[in-house]
Amino acid sequence: MQQQHSLPGTSQDAPEAPAPASGSIPVVPLRHPVRMALAIVLIVLALGGAWDIAVNQRYHWDVVISYLFAPQILTGAVLTIVLTVVSMSVGIALGTVLAIMRLSANPIVSTIARGYIWFFRGTPLLVQLIFWYNIAALYPVIAFGLPFGGPALALGSANVLITPLGAALLGLSLNEAAYMAEIIRGGIRSVDKGQYDAARALGMNGGLLMRRVILPQAMRVVLPPTGNQVISMLKGTSLVSVLAISDLLYSAQIIYSNNYQTIPLLIVASLWYLLMTTILSFFQTKLERRYGRGFETAPKAARRAKTRTAS
């Protein structure tokens, strides 16, 4: 498996720049015998490894196939998708707000955001999940109201309001927001200051300026690490098994704790995770292309600046 990674590298610099048409002199392209040999060795090794895995009886491929579409696995996969989509959406929305707060000129606002990020990145996600799950022990009644014992509107018992799924979504979202806030902050800061001036000079301000001018440009920088976040969230949701939520991995674990087919069921779960990350990467590439529009090559102005200082 590992060896296949190095294969694309061989094709990357393969297309040689065509030599400028130099009259009628024939051009013999440079050959790369060592590169070719290396590629062949790697292909043979990879195929051999794959063949080995396929014929090895102890993988129990028959069991893998029989459980691949088992209802329990499928509902587990759906739950994993729901957890990922909801937590990422809330995480990105809250992360954007936190990023803007963090960059605020108001020291109280930026300190609050900084404190939030410090806390949620600094404590283990597992602890946060268990904390939300046990919130009823700390706050038996959930209410909206004024602090310091002022009047409050009771919403109900924490035990009823915070279900295991609720605790899982709360924990994952709030944790994700802290990471997304830092990613989005980096994206916002990567946008040229001149863009603020130009937008303000046109009468734009506040939300409009952010939404139409700054954030779309920040997207270019934000998207690749966000793709990473989504994929690690997809697999990170398996942590919620501690709250007895039957996500994809936990469903597989329940099955193999009964039939002792540990490896085949872990393979089933992994195949589903692989499929999901593949689909996500596809969308990531599309989004990156969408927000890369207008940035395809080095800006002309920058290139000129370089040639100027050189002259």
């Binding site: 001036d197 937008a199 779309p216 927000y291 940035f295 102005a301």
Partner: peptide, 23 residues
């Protein structure tokens, strides 16, 4: 800020480095 943005519309501004919206 809102009033300032409104009054800014009286003047158009052109910058040394163009500052067009690249996206």
């Amino acid at each position: 800020e809102r009033q300032t943005a409104r009054s800014r519309r009286a003047a158009g501004m052109v910058f040394q480095r163009f500052n067009l919206f690249p996206h």
